[in-house]
């Protein structure tokens, strides 16, 4: 082996290592370590100082002590507002995800049925709104939903209602906001799944006399479960921690954990408490996250087997 070969060999080796090392270390520094810091702070105590929490470790009289303070977690458990906050976040996210699925599935299905070149155009039309500022679109919804906004003015003008409906600052507005913002995340995975289906299956079923509705529930729907799960998780998980939508569209009684965390951090200046809220929220989300990853892995295996 000559030197050049050794050189290229090492280069290849190190190149391969670099491919792993670069993103790995980036995530380590900017994702894992921050999370560990949050974990650490959740075990400290808040105080009036800069930074506003105590050190876990102290070095007094040659004794190195580490003190883990469970107060924030006990407090979290005892203070019932947080419990109801978690429950109501999950409820709101679940309802919004269901609505999203009910609206998103038919859209994905209709797109998958289109001729191939129109499909891409339709798909692009679904994604296009997300490419404009999210906040601006949410503000547009405020204008539509508010007391003397578009919907109320239209309904009152038509004489359907006499008193304006209160929609803004209610849970309904939050549902509309979440469904609106996350609809593409539901449509895309379902569409990707549906478009792969073998249409000959449906034709065979039709030949055997199955009605379209029957074969939809017996064949298409079961086959698209992995798309449904992926889409639902992509909507559900971020909705649980949503802050902007309940803050802008929700009312004061729309209790969501993202808002509670925000107020614990900013209004109560309780950084350790806010960190504990974050840790518990993440623990809460581990189950849906694993479900999501498992289905993704399964989907990919199937794809791999096809090749």
């Amino acid at each position: 082996m000559n030197i050049a070969q050794v050189f290229t060999q090492t280069l290849k080796q190190s190149g391969k290592k670099l491919v792993v090392l670069l993103p790995f270390s980036w995530l380590l520094v900017f994702f894992l370590i921050p999370f560990l810091i949050v974990l650490q702070i959740s075990f400290s105590e808040s105080r009036i100082a800069q930074p506003p929490f105590t050190d876990l470790t102290s070095f007094v009289d040659d004794v190195y002590t580490i003190s883990l303070n469970l107060f924030n977690y006990i407090d979290l458990y005892e203070y019932d507002l947080y419990l109801s906050g978690y429950i109501s976040s999950v409820k709101i996210a679940f309802t919004a995800t269901t609505l999203c699925l009910l609206i998103g599935y038919p859209i994905a299905y209709a797109i998958a049925k289109l001729p191939p070149h129109t499909r891409n155009l339709a798909l692009m039309l679904v994604i296009l709104p997300s490419w404009t500022s999210f906040l601006i679109r949410i503000y547009a919804w405020i204008g539509i939903l508010k007391q003397n906004g578009l919907i109320n003015n239209a309904l009152m003008g038509l004489g359907v209602i006499e008193q304006p409906l209160e929609i803004l600052h209610t849970p309904i507005a939050v549902y509309i906001g979440i469904v609106y913002a996350y609809l593409p995340f539901m449509v895309l995975p379902i569409y990707t799944n549906l478009v792969k289906h073998d249409s000959s299956l449906l034709e065979a079923a039709a030949d055997l006399g199955a009605r379209p509705i029957g074969s939809f529930f017996k064949i298409t729907l079961p086959l698209s479960v992995s798309g449904i799960v992926a889409g639902s998780m992509l909507v559900f998980i971020p909705s649980v921690g949503e802050f902007v939508i309940p803050e802008l569209l929700g009312g004061p009684d729309t209790l969501m954990i993202g808002k509670l965390l925000w107020s614990e951090f900013f209004n109560a200046r309780n950084w350790p408490g806010a960190s504990a809220v974050a840790v518990v929220m993440l623990l809460l989300l581990i189950l849906p996250i694993t479900i999501f990853q498992r289905y993704q892995a399964k989907d990919l295996e199937e794809q791999a087997n096809e090749h």
């Binding site: 019932d80 507002l81 004061p252 009684d253 209790l255 107020s263 209004n267 109560a268 309780n270």
Partner: peptide, 14 residues
């Protein structure tokens, strides 16, 4: 802390 908790609870209608 007592004040801000009372406030959060009040706002959420609990």
């Amino acid at each position: 802390r007592a004040g801000s908790r009372m406030w959060t609870a009040l706002k959420s209608g609990k």
